[in-house]
């Protein structure tokens, strides 16, 4: 078994509500996860469930309220400034928005070269050579190096972002909705590129997406988040074939497919409740079709099932539900 490259232990991130110090938005509320080297973790949930906050906290772009993040054996929140800069080169991120994730005033070469010139002591001809290799690796022409980002399509920009993220061969790459704003054909190409690069360099990914198709296609494990909490977490095959948490089930049921008629698509009633005053008990009970009295009273404990998945639901936990 490979070792854990990233361990998230009971991570919490609360934002104070504007003008008040007593109320908090609990964006991430006690999440624990482990990622092994060479593994792909898919993080799923509706918008506002805390996926992005979780990632920002893991990347140390915001400070956590509570909890620990151990990356490659180092506690991320107790690093000195210098150690932090060193560590940064091992974690890279690809953002959702290909239009604003690249500086519009820099040419592609400078964009891709930035991590190299910040983190390494390569001279300019070495950097030029490396940039060309990287562009070729992600399937872009060499001449592209001297163009501006706006001269490329959304899919190509995402390739540039991937080239930049991989320039230092990081140990962990976070892909935040990598294909949500590009078309299906480019999406397919980007996804298979990401997959190929993973095989080639034995990379570790965290893939965030609200598209279950993308997540199931990419990842070895899936973590489903709802209102800052993990509701189900386990092997992709297990969760994909037999989702057990009612929320996971609802998510999968809502995907429109060529083979399903609209009348057979199940919809989830209501909206995600506010995370300022989340409902008591199980946070999902307001929209859950199986909800019973106990669900609105006590919060379900997170248990590990025989097949290795973690789940937090009274229906699964209690045999006499």
């Amino acid at each position: 078994m490979a070792e854990n490259i990233l361990e998230i232990k009971n991570l919490k991130k609360y934002f104070p509500v504007k003008g008040q110090n007593t109320e908090f938005v609990k964006a991430v509320d006690g999440v624990s996860l482990n990622i092994k080297r060479g593994e792909v973790l898919g993080l799923v949930g509706e918008s506002g469930c805390g996926k992005s906050t979780l990632v920002n906290t893991v990347l140390c772009l915001t400070q956590p309220t509570e909890g620990e993040v151990i990356f490659d054996g180092k506690n991320m929140f107790s690093l000195s400034k210098k150690e932090m800069r060193e560590t940064r080169k091992d974690i890279q991120i690809v953002f959702q928005d290909p239009f604003w994730s690249l500086n519009p005033r820099m040419i592609v070469k400078d964009i891709v070269a930035e991590p190299l010139s910040v983190q390494t002591k390569m001279n300019s001809s070495e950097i030029s050579k490396k940039v060309e290799e990287l562009l070729e690796m992600v399937g872009l022409p060499r001449e592209g190096a001297y163009k501006y980002p706006h001269e490329f399509s959304g899919g190509q920009r995402q390739r540039i972002a991937i080239a930049r993220a991989l320039s230092l061969m990081p140990k962990l790459v976070v892909l935040d909705e990598p294909t949500s704003s590009i078309d299906v054909v480019s999406q397919a190409q980007i996804l298979s590129l990401i997959n190929d690069l993973k095989e080639k360099f034995n990379l570790t990914y965290i893939v965030i997406s609200h598209d279950l198709g993308v997540v199931s296609y990419m990842s070895d494990k899936i973590a489903v988040m709802y209102l800052g909490k993990l509701v189900e977490y386990g092997e992709t095959d297990l969760i994909f074939n037999k989702p057990m948490h009612p929320y996971t089930e609802a998510l999968f049921a809502a995907i429109p497919d060529i083979d399903t008629d609209i009348d057979n698509i199940k919809t989830l009633e209501g909206n995600v409740p506010s995370s300022i005053n989340p409902p008591p008990g199980c946070k999902f009970h307001t929209r859950c079709q199986f909800a019973k009295e106990i669900c609105s009273r006590t919060e379900p404990e997170t248990v590990i099932l025989d097949d290795g998945r973690t789940i937090a639901c009274h229906k699964i936990n209690n045999t006499n539900f």
Partner: peptide, 22 residues
């Protein structure tokens, strides 16, 4: 054909790039 084959479904059903190759 390319459009339809480009939608990712699951791990077991890899996108067949040769089918969507352009």
């Amino acid at each position: 054909f390319v459009l339809l084959n480009a939608i990712p479904k699951s791990k077991n059903e890899k996108i067949n790039l040769s089918r969507i190759a352009i």
